[in-house]
Amino acid sequence: MDNFINNIVSITILLFLLITFLQSGIDKITDWKGNLSWLKEHFAKTFMGNAVPLLLAVVLIIEMITAICCVIGVYTLIANNDVFFGVLAMFLACITLLMLLFGQRVAKDYPGALTITCYFIVSIFGLYVISL
């Protein structure tokens, strides 16, 4: 119980990131065609327009890896106070969000970029807290 209490902020942020990335990944899997169609239109006038299927697959893979690391991170923080997977999950979340931010900026979707920035702030704060 002490490990849970001592790591409550990190655990809560990991759960937030788990929900965020797991839901996003599941949505991409269950509605691949819909996501692909929307993103092709979103990036049609950018240099990334032709690479959308590959980029969507890369984002899906890293989101699912991040979600898995979040689950393992919560478990290892509670079980033996080990921060490795928690740090990895939060770092991967930051990298994923930076990739998404880059895409939104390229597409000139500034409100979308702002939304991603909010998630990034939570992720970088979590990375800071777990690294203390």
Rank of each mutant, 00 (worst) to 15 (best):
L132Q: 12
L77S: 07
L127W: 11
G73P: 00
V83K: 09
K108Y: 14
Y75W: 01
F43P: 01
I72T: 02
F102T: 06
Y128W: 14
Y75K: 00
L101Y: 10
F84Q: 03
N6Q: 12
I5K: 15
L127V: 14
F4Q: 12
C70N: 03
A113M: 14
V83Y: 06
N80R: 11
W38P: 13
I8T: 13
D2I: 13
L14Y: 11
N7V: 13
L100D: 06
V122I: 15
I78A: 04
I78N: 10
A44E: 10
Y75A: 00
I61N: 06
I121F: 15
G25K: 02
A93L: 06
F43N: 06
G73D: 02
S131E: 05
D2L: 13
S10E: 09
D109S: 07
L127I: 14
G86M: 05
Y110L: 12
V71T: 05
S37W: 05
C94V: 15
L88M: 12
V52A: 04
L77F: 03
V52K: 01
N35E: 03
L18F: 15
V9A: 13
M99P: 03
D82M: 07
H42C: 04
T115R: 10
K40A: 10
T115L: 14
I5R: 15
W38K: 15
I8M: 10
V106L: 13
V9D: 07
N35Y: 02
I11K: 08
C94P: 07
D27P: 05
L39S: 11
F43C: 07
I19K: 12
N6C: 10
F21A: 12
F85V: 01
Y110E: 09
